[in-house]
Nucleic acid binder design. Sequence first.
DNA 1: GCTCCGATGCTCT
DNA 2: GAGCATCGGAGCC
Length: 202
Amino acid sequence: MIDFINTPTTEVAQLLIGKIISHEVDGVVRSGIIVDTECYMGEVDEASHGFGGKRTQRMEAMFLEGGHIYLYEMRGHILMNFVCGPIDHPEGVMIRAIEPLEGIAAMIQARQTTGPNLTNGPAKLTQALGITMNSYGSLLGDTIHLSVSTPYKARTIIKTSRIGIPNKGEWTYAPLRFYVRGNPYCSNVKKSTLDTDRGWTI
DNA sequence: GCTCCGATGCTCT
DNA sequence: GAGCATCGGAGCC
């Protein structure tokens, strides 16, 4: 299991790649392999909700100890983050995309679509997994589970700038996004760069 | 009470 | 590749 409190956030983001996240809805387990993550670096990161020491009701979970779930609602969509670092330290890793594994039929029903479109975006995967604001501030392992081991090994992890962060100075270009090269479920990838083994070495 | 706006996604060109 | 739909929280009046 990852030590979310003592491991640097940027390292957590890379360690999460290849792990399996699961959530149970009505007795049906839905799970997927994490393939795309982004870091948000707390008070100093202009793109982070915790920037400048701001602290409001809806971001309270971000200030919990590492290992908690921070959910953010935007335009009716839910985005999921794993909180990192010690308490009162608003850093976290957003899960940007997963590769469906179990409960795919349920995901298709929830999303009303199939293929990469099922989970290749932060709001898409929460909808596919059936995650709701009920899990806000819960501890990882409570309603949302993460595999202890890393069953899938990425051949190459691409390190690049984050998506949807304009006009944030150096933070717009900071290499805080990590994803599996060649995996079709990553956000915003070119078709020509996909690999037949989806980027895994096993 | 009201306005502004975003860590998005979908649709159409 | 660009434009827009559309919801709730934050912050200010």
